[in-house]
Design a protein around this nucleic acid. Structure first.
Lengths: 344, 344
DNA sequence: TAGATTCACGAAAACGTTGTAGTGTTAATA
DNA sequence: TATTAACACTACAACGTTTTCGTGAATCTA
């Protein structure tokens, strides 16, 4: 049995399409018995209005597009689950486009979704986009009246709603904690500077050091090439960190800007027969389940990804549903929280 | 500047809508100079045909709906990334609906998407659905001519395309390996039997034992209540496994039916001052990144989630695009692979 | 009983496309 | 010169809705 439409019901019951439509909406224009008859029929054959037709008619899709650099990634999925939650509560559906950190995929994905499929974007830009600093697709999208809310990986040059975690502050808290535990030689394992969050967290690291008058030792900063994010290169990364640790044997604490770096640091240190947390304390940055399930449990700066996602979705939906065309852009900051486990 | 449509171009250039449509499709019906003019205009103002209108006209959306029980979960996201990959290659977009293991959310999500938004479903049923054994929503969907491909968590009672991992065989391989390493008291940490994959993996465990004539000791089977899947109950789970380990001190190997159980087992064993892998060897079941980044690296039965996702998407798209209405249903089995790391 | 009012319903436009079937003009054929 | 063919374009229907505007019939008012 194929999909039921108003037309088919109308034909079957020998009334007009308008009558059916109105009856199902319980319009007072239609007589009670006609209404009953139509409703019963619709119920029986499980009629559901066609979303596509509604979207076309109403010029809105009740759908949100998420553009995300990666999906096998606890932080992003946590954010997505937050987005999905409020989207669903408000009657919205969610489409996901993955950029895989590629500028081109980000552009084509956005292009495709922007062509009528969605009412607005939730976007975390790819690393490549951050590197190229080419934002024409974002500008065009916004110019066409399609709202964008950026989350986590935002770009300063574009004016739009943003939701970010307080990277600098979170990093600072973590490093301050390490200092308070009498660590004197605190290393940071971070990304290259073109990755915004890496840069910000590194800034927090430096701030904490400065605040407590701990001298900054540039050789304690390990900036990891992007290639190490590939799971294939995990063994390489272990070795790389180990040689860093060997070169700097005085290191007694590591602050890692993400979960993978943190966990790999633990593995590397262990491989060097250092005990965690006795010889080296480790704090990561993440919202992930990994940290909780790892042995030893990894202390982390939690990013509250779910709240971030909820916030972002709320901002977007508000903008979509507001008739004010000149709502001022907001930037919301989601606070971090230091969660202490066994690695400190 | 608002969205450009054929109508606006037509009005602007003083030609008919049809002419614009045809010109952009390079139809020979239209004169060269008119074509050039229209194309140039469209290019300049970045015209993109409206997907919604196309969907309505063509009666197909070029969109796939994924219904997934959970998203903060490496296995499912790996599958999704596989789906997204082939979907994109073939010009499809992906909508995600999360059931959060709830029957009701599964039903309402499917209902919503089935109303015109998508051409077919990729579905992994929720635990609650498995428990209730209420499949009316699946039957109705299929009856309406909407194809479903089930992945991983399938239901035997429904006829449709399926892609599964070889749970029994994978579990068997893992346990066989443990036996070959001279483990004599191999425990299994599994789910309750209503979870299909738990049941199948337990079957594999038993098969392996039987094959090598190792006596089956029912007290070595720990069936975990669903509540332990909640990350909140992680500490509880650790204690629970520890008391199990204390009650059965002879256990020298653990086969866990998922990554979290495996990692938690390691943590529990460690807490009991047992060394991994010297005192207890552990093998998990998963595709996750966790295993790789954990210390010690967790040996696992890899499920090749990405291939599974790719396979599922291929099956679905083939069915959608085939004009044959009576394509026979297929069930594809994705082989598992034993990946040995430090926990064995 | 003429006029107004209410009731119950239908026709049609619109959203943005595409494709089929015209249509009017010019050029080629017989 | 009359017929036909080619060309370059336009009109219109359809996809499934919703909504505004009619409209004919029954009922009410004076």
């Amino acid at each position: 049995m194929q999909k039921l439409t108003l037309k088919k019901i109308a034909h079957e019951l020998d009334v007009s399409i308008s009558t059916v439509s109105k009856a199902l909406k319980d319009s007072p224009e239609i007589g009670e018995d006609t209404k009953d008859k139509i409703k019963a029929f619709a119920q029986l054959y499980n009629y559901r209005p066609n979303n596509i037709a509604l979207s076309l008619k109403n010029q809105k899709t009740k759908t949100l597009g998420i553009i995300c650099p990666e999906i096998v990634h606890d932080f992003f999925t946590t954010v997505i689950s937050g987005i999905e939650k409020v989207a669903n509560e408000r009657g919205y559906t969610v489409i996901i486009g993955l950029s895989n950190e590629s500028f081109e995929k980000e552009v084509t994905n956005m292009d495709k979704l922007a062509s009528g499929s969605i009412d607005g974007f939730l976007l975390s830009v790819s690393k490549e986009t951050q590197l190229k600093k080419d934002y024409h697709h974002l500008i065009e999208t916004i110019d066409q009246g399609m709202p964008i809310v950026m989350f986590d990986r935002t770009v300063d040059e574009i004016e739009c709603d943003k939701v970010v975690v307080d990277d600098t502050e979170g990093a600072k808290k973590a490093v301050l904690k390490l200092i308070s535990e009498n660590c004197e030689n605190i290393a940071i394992i971070t990304t290259e500077d073109h990755v915004n969050v890496g840069k910000l967290r590194t800034a927090g690291y430096k701030e904490a050091l400065a605040k407590e008058n701990v001298p900054l030792n540039e050789s304690f900063i390990l900036r990891l090439d992007d290639k190490f994010n590939d799971d294939e290169n995990h063994d390489l990364l272990v070795e790389h960190i180990q040689s860093f640790l060997v070169k700097n044997p005085s290191i007694d604490a590591i602050f890692a800007v993400n979960e993978k770096y943190a966990l790999t640091s633990i593995k590397a240190a262990r491989g060097l027969s250092k005990s965690i947390p006795r010889d080296v304390k480790v704090i990561g940055f993440s919202d992930g389940v990994l940290s909780k399930y790892a042995t030893p449990g990894l202390s982390t700066v939690s990013q509250h990804g779910k709240q971030l996602g909820e916030m972002a979705a709320r901002l977007l939906i508000e903008r979509i549903e507001s008739k004010e065309t000149d709502l001022p852009y907001r930037t919301e900051v989601v606070a971090t929280e230091l969660i202490l486990r066994e690695s400190t």
